[in-house]
Computed example of a mutant assay.
Amino acid sequence: MCTAACHHGRSEAPSAPPQASGGADVVEQIRKLKELHEAGILTDAEFSTKKTELLDRL
């Protein structure tokens, strides 16, 4: 039986938990975003928005 907190049947990924390594993880995520941006997968606006969100975590 499912409870109120159950995510049964949902395919969405859970929110990322707070990072223990803090800044190092944020920097790595920005590097990955940069690769996606350079490959043309992310627009300038998408890259900038996500980068700002990640930097706000520091």
Rank of each mutant, 00 (worst) to 15 (best):
A39Q: 13
A39F: 08
L58P: 07
A4W: 07
A20P: 02
M1V: 14
V26Q: 07
K34I: 00
C6M: 00
A24D: 12
C6Q: 01
H8E: 13
A39E: 12
E12H: 05
S11I: 07
K51R: 15
Q19H: 01
H37K: 09
E12Q: 09
A20I: 09
D44W: 00
L33H: 03
Q29E: 14
M1H: 06
S48D: 15
Q29C: 02
E53R: 09
P14H: 04
A20L: 13
E38W: 01
I30E: 04
D25Q: 13
Q29F: 01
R57W: 10
D44Y: 01
T52G: 12
L55H: 08
C6N: 07
H7L: 11
T3H: 09
S21T: 12
T52Y: 11
T49C: 04
T52I: 12
E12M: 03
I30C: 07
A13H: 03
A4R: 08
K51S: 03
L33C: 04
D44M: 01
K51C: 06
V27I: 11
L36Y: 07
H8Y: 15
T49M: 13
T49G: 01
I30T: 07
F47M: 04
K51G: 01
A13D: 07
T43H: 08
E12F: 10
L33V: 01
C2G: 00
L58Y: 10
A13K: 12
Q19T: 10
D56E: 15
A16F: 10
G23R: 13
G9S: 06
A24Y: 03
H8S: 14
L58A: 11
M1D: 06
L55P: 02
G22K: 05
E12T: 05
G9N: 06
R10L: 15
S21H: 09
V26R: 12
A16Y: 11
G40K: 06
I30Y: 07
S48G: 07
T3N: 12
G40V: 02
S21M: 08
A5K: 14
L36F: 06
T52V: 13
P18M: 06
H7W: 05
E46C: 06
E38L: 13
A24T: 12
S15I: 01
L36H: 09
F47G: 01
A13I: 08
P18C: 05
S21P: 00
K50S: 10
K34L: 09
D56L: 14
H7C: 08
E38R: 10
A5Q: 14
R57I: 03
L33W: 03
D44F: 01
S15D: 10
V26C: 05
E46S: 11
E53D: 13
D44T: 02
S21L: 10
E35L: 12
A4Q: 10
F47Y: 15
T49H: 14
E38T: 00
V26H: 05
G23T: 09
L36S: 13
P17H: 04
T3Y: 11
P17G: 08
L54A: 04
M1E: 06
H8F: 15
I30V: 15
K51Q: 14
G40A: 05
E35W: 03
K51V: 00
A5F: 10
E46R: 11
P18D: 12
I30L: 08
S21D: 14
T43L: 08
G40Y: 07
L42P: 03
E28I: 01
L54F: 06
P18T: 09
T43P: 06
D56T: 14
H8G: 13
R57S: 14
F47A: 02
L54T: 02
S48W: 02
K32M: 11
E28C: 02
K50C: 02
